[in-house]
Every structure is written in structure tokens, then in C-alpha cells.
Write a protein that binds this DNA or RNA. Structure first.
Length: 513
DNA sequence: GAAAAGTTGGTTCA
DNA sequence: TGAACCAACTTTTC
């Protein structure tokens, strides 16, 4: 007689019921279903993940729990290293099958490999469907001849061969497989979800963006109700200074945690594109934004040392400075450039900025002004962004620092003109840097140029109440450009000497489990 | 091998 | 507001 099927459904990302193939398979023919989330202490330190993202996660878990309960199921949350927690509970619950969504981040991949091994030893069947990305990345790499595409153009032509992404999975049944009776009686499970404080966080969350599948779906519907806006979406034309409301969808945090399925979002956009004769196209269109995410996932998953400069075959080797004063000033909104400092305040408070605002501060920290290493800025974003995503974040930092993908290092954003172009009056600065709010529009982007009298009238003395600029942008950017050119030239010499990395050398490291 | 393109530059001048 | 110019990278297209 065969054993009764008892499914363990391990949520990590993919915090949703819609388009969730792992959920469907786990219910299929099962006697009991045990849905869990494991709070891994590796993530739960303020220097690795800030309170805004953890709060967003907790809200997403709360929402998921309610949705599961509404369908006769439940969710329990445990704390500990997955490799220790999982074997304990699958023994206690007599688990026969384990389901979780595939995750290609290095930490997750390593962790999941070990979990698979432990599961195999315990005779547990494991199934890990792809539902975080539009495509199975392994398949994309294979179709591309074993190496990742190195530009968006190449990626688009690869997608041309592969076709459209699969449709989202069907919705789960109204009545899910019931949880086993011992689900909540197990040692170590949280009766109700822990708070930030319970998890050891001293600071409160300050973001106005709140997590969960319910919020994700309503935000998406609301945004897409205006079909014309979807059809005309053109990323480079967005306004980085708009914050109430922002110029983009702000769905990225929901995609990061899988509260929203990329495949569902893609299908909804494609539907509108079908209805409209005129619509923008990738890479600038709204659908194109999902393709950028997919591009960075594909390249990031198949490039050695993707999150480092050294030993990274696609990353230019650049002689970045190490100046902790500069870096701290950037991180703590003390550069003396209001446009830059206001964006960094938004990052700290909201855990989200417009894409172009990210460009402005990333360029300023690296090739534009301060010549600090992109890895340091990457770490700050990774800690503070609610949507902080390993693949996308690393990819974009290499892009902005002209280390990979983008090479026109002589195009530098001005920390004064760029913001002014969109927000002449400086409302964005006034909101996020209230110390400057009384400066007239003529001085708000360059308050150090205001006379002593004007500074007094604005109740803000530059050098005392708000810092003077830490560098002269014209001097700094011109020196940065010279150094970038020298670094590029040196790299060219090296490549000539050693030859470009062969496709073989660029072959994907085994990180797809 | 030359020309054009590359999701999102800045400044100046009419 | 838009065109010309700045200085000049790599990849793609022809």
C-alpha cells in the first residue's frame, strides 16, 4: 500500500495564491497540506535588511495567511535556519512531498541544494516549479548556446526564438487541502506573526508602501484601469521627482517578493497591447520593464561573480577610490547637493525611489562624482530598498557605474540640472529635505550660491544647518571621466593581451540546482 | 570596415 | 522648446 501524501509547501518568495504551481501540485492528491514560511536569521539583521523590507515581508505573510485560511488552509511561520528547521518538521509531520518555487539567487541556490539533499536522504519527493520569472532561465541559457546574452538586444532576439512566456497557472481551488491536525501544535511555530520588535529590530518601519498579494493585485488593477497610460508608457520619459503619486507603477516590491506574478503582470499588459493599435515597445514600454528584470535574472544567474567586480567576466575593472567620508556622506544625505540628498532621504524613509532617481545617485557615487566602488552603493540599496533584488540591483549598479552593459561613461548626470529639468520649483527637495524648504526656487538646487542674507531668510545657513557640497561637480566629474577613460584603456590592453573571454569561459556556473 | 544605435546627458544658443 | 555641439564608449547593423 502506498503512503498517504503529506505535502510540505515551503513559501520563500512567491507569497501569493495566484499563478502558484507549487501550491497546485502540493494539493494534488494530498491527504494533508502543510504551508510554512521560515524566518531565516541570516536575513534578519538591520545591517543586511532594513526594517522597511522586513515589515513589507511580515505584511505579505499576514495577507497570505488570511488568504490561505479563507480557503480552508493556513500558514505557520517558524524561525531558524531552513536546513535545521525543515528536517525537524518533516519528521514530526510525516512529510512525503516537498514543494517550493525555484530561486536562482546564490544564497537561495546553495540553501536549496542542501535542502534537496536532506530531503532525498529522508525519502521525500521534491518539486520546484519555475514561477518567479517569466521563463525557465536554464532553458533560456541553453537556447542561447550555454552562455548568457550580453545585451538587451541579444536578449530580445533570444526571446524572439523562444516565444512568449507561458500563461500564468490556473487559480487554486476554493477549497484547499486541509492542514494536518498537528500543524499548530508543533514546537517553534509562531501562533501569530512576530512584529519587527519581536525579531530584534530597534527601528520602526517608515515606508508608506505596504505588502501583500491583495495590495499587489489592487495596485495593478488600479494602474492598469487607464489602458492608454499602459499603452503609452515610456520609461525614459518618467518623472523621477514625482512622489505623490509616483510616475511608475511601484509594483517592483511586489514582484520582488512574488506577491505579484511577473507572468500575470506580463499577460495583463500583453492583453492591453493587443487592444491598442499604438503602443510603446520594449525596451522602453511597460512590458519592456519586465523584460529588463528577466534579462538581469538571466545574465546574473549565469555569470560568475556577478555581484563583484573582481573575477566577473562582464565587469570592467576600474580603480575606484575608497573614501569612507564620501561614502557616508552619500549614504546619509550629507553631500551638500539637495537633489542627491533628497533622493537618499526618500530611500531611507520609503525604501523606494523612481528608477531615474536611482540613476542620479548611483552615477554620483561612482563614475560621476565621488568615484566610490559600485559594490558599496549596491550594498546600501540592497539593505534599504523594499524591492531590493539581487539580480536587478547588481545589474543596474554595473550599468550605472559603466562597469557592464552601458559604456558611455562620458554621459554624466548633473546633480543640479537633472532634477531641475523635471521639478523646477524643487518640491521633491522641499518634501524630503525640509531644512531647505524655505529657499526660493532659484537657490533650492544650489543653496550654497545663495547670499548670506538669502540663507538667513530661508532659515538655513549653508555649512551649519545643511552641508556645503563635498565636491565641485565640474571638477569632480571631469576628473572621473579621465580616470574612467584610463581604466577602459587599460582594460582594452588586458583584453588584447589575454583575448576576450571565450563562450566556454563564460559558460554558466552550475547555480540552477 | 564604416555607420548607426544604444531604455533615460549636459550646455549653449536661437 | 528644440537643434547643434560637446567628446567619444561598445555593440549592432549594413
Amino acid at each position: 500500500m502506498t503512503k498517504q501524501k503529506r505535502s510540505l509547501l515551503w513559501f520563500r518568495k512567491g507569497l501569493r495564491l495566484h499563478d502558484n504551481p507549487a501550491l497546485l501540485s502540493s494539493c494534488d492528491g494530498a491527504k494533508y497540506l502543510y504551508p510554512i514560511f521560515v524566518l531565516d536569521p541570516w536575513f534578519l539583521t538591520a545591517d543586511r535588511v532594513g526594517p522597511n523590507r522586513i515589515q513589507f515581508l511580515l505584511e505579505s505573510l499576514e495577507d497570505l495567511k488570511h488568504s490561505l485560511q479563507a480557503r480552508g488552509s493556513d500558514l505557520v511561520v517558524l524561525k531558524g535556519k531552513p536546513l535545521e528547521v525543515l528536517p525537524t518538521i518533516w519528521k514530526t509531520w510525516g512529510i512525503t512531498h516537498l514543494y517550493f518555487e525555484k530561486d536562482t539567487e546564490p544564497y537561495a541556490n546553495e540553501r536549496d541544494g542542501q535542502v534537496r539533499q536532506a530531503a532525498a536522504k529522508a525519502n521525500i519527493e521534491v518539486e520546484t516549479p519555475v514561477s518567479h520569472t517569466l521563463y525557465d532561465l536554464e532553458m533560456l541559457i541553453e537556447k542561447n548556446g550555454g552562455a548568457p546574452p550580453d545585451s538587451m538586444k541579444a536578449f530580445e532576439s533570444l526571446l524572439g526564438k523562444v516565444g512568449l512566456p507561458a500563461a500564468p497557472a490556473e487559480d487554486p481551488p476554493e477549497k484547499l487541502t486541509a492542514p494536518g491536525p498537528e500543524l499548530k501544535k508543533t514546537t517553534g511555530v509562531y501562533d501569530s506573526l512576530p512584529s519587527l520588535k519581536d525579531l530584534g529590530y530597534k527601528d520602526e518601519a517608515t515606508s508608506s508602501i505596504h505588502g501583500g498579494e491583495t495590495n499587489a493585485l489592487s495596485r495593478m488593477s488600479e494602474w492598469m484601469a487607464d489602458k492608454q497610460r499602459v499603452a503609452e508608457f515610456e520609461k525614459p520619459k518618467g518623472n523621477p521627482a514625482a512622489f505623490d503619486p509616483p510616475a511608475t507603477t511601484v509594483l517592483s516590491p511586489f514582484l520582488k517578493f512574488g506577491c505579484l506574478s511577473a507572468r500575470l503582470f506580463h499577460a495583463k499588459i500583453a492583453q492591453i497591447e493587443k487592444e491598442k493599435n499604438n503602443h510603446t515597445k520594449p525596451p522602453v514600454s511597460l512590458r519592456g520593464q519586465l523584460l529588463w528584470r528577466e534579462f538581469f535574472y538571466t545574465v546574473g544567474g549565469a555569470t560568475k561573480n556577478f555581484d563583484k567586480m573582481e573575477g566577473n567576466p562582464i565587469c570592467r575593472q576600474i580603480d575606484w577610490d575608497q573614501n569612507d567620508e564620501f561614502f557616508k556622506a552619500w549614504e546619509e544625505s550629507r553631500t551638500g547637493y539637495p537633489w542627491i540628498d533628497a533622493i537618499m532621504m526618500q530611500l531611507n524613509k520609503e525604501g523606494w525611489m523612481h528608477h531615474l532617481a536611482r540613476h542620479a545617485v548611483a552615477c554620483f557615487l561612482t563614475r560621476g562624482d565621488l568615484y566610490q566602488h559600485w559594490e558599496k552603493g549596491r550594498d546600501t540599496f540592497d539593505r534599504l530598498l523594499i524591492d531590493g533584488d539581487w539580480h536587478v540591483n547588481n545589474g543596474n549598479w554595473m550599468w550605472l557605474s559603466a562597469s557592464a552593459f552601458f559604456h558611455q561613461f562620458f554621459r554624466v548626470y548633473s546633480p543640479v540640472s537633472f532634477g531641475k529639468k523635471y521639478d523646477k520649483n524643487g518640491d521633491f527637495i522641499r518634501h524630503f529635505l525640509p531644512v531647505l524648504k524655505d529657499f526660493p526656487a532659484a537657490h533650492i538646487y544650489e543653496p550654497w550660491k545663495a547670499s548670506e542674507k538669502a540663507q538667513k531668510e530661508a532659515n538655513c545657513i549653508i555649512g551649519k544647518d545643511y552641508p556645503k557640497p563635498i565636491v565641485d561637480h565640474n571638477e569632480a566629474s571631469s576628473s572621473c571621466k579621465d580616470r574612467m577613460k584610463a581604466a577602459y584603456d587599460a582594460g582594452k590592453e588586458t583584453r588584447k593581451r589575454e583575448g576576450a573571454p571565450s563562450p566556454q569561459a563564460r559558460k554558466a556556473p552550475k547555480i540552477y540546482g
